[in-house]
Design a protein around this nucleic acid. Structure first.
Lengths: 72, 72
DNA sequence: TCACATTATACCTTTTAGGGTATATAAAGA
DNA sequence: TCTTTATATACCCTAAAAGGTATAATGTGA
């Protein structure tokens, strides 16, 4: 449940692009797309935005929603 | 009009923290806070999230809104 | 099964983000 | 004014992000 990962994976499939095509279109390396879709945390923000721009989106601060109530 | 910059600046002021205090609390360097508040684009996503977590937020994809109608 | 396309992993190199420190400027209070 | 605090700028160094390439592992359709 990583929002960025899910978003890019889904949108890419919808548009019908391969990782390679998305990389080329957004101007980042293929390895970057792979690392992004694998949930790497230490990505550079500008590169992430380069990719999101393909889908009309950008990274922005968003409130964290609580999703697990404390019970073990 | 950089959402991240405005968000961090405002929240930090509201909480009444200095850049140094925010850096220490969020576990990043002071220089990072400075670069963030100056709109540096090439920040690392994990570090940005370290800071946003102090305010209960995280970076997530967000639709780009149109703000300028084409006239010069 | 055999191609072919797509995705995943691993290695190497270059570039640079981030941290630390020192100094400079700015702002706020006496 | 002079201090003190906060913020800004500049330097050096280390760690690692990103890219390229090669290879492996999946898939997918004959």
């Amino acid at each position: 449940m990583n929002k960025l990962v899910d978003f890019v994976k889904n949108r890419r499939k919808i548009i019908g692009l391969t990782q390679k095509e998305l990389a080329e279109k957004s101007g980042v390396g293929l390895r970057f797309i792979r690392e992004l879709e694998h949930g790497k945390q230490t990505l550079r923000l500008d590169k992430v935005n380069d990719v999101l721009r393909m889908f009309g989106h950008m990274m922005a601060p968003e409130k964290i929603e609580i999703l697990e109530t404390g019970e073990k």
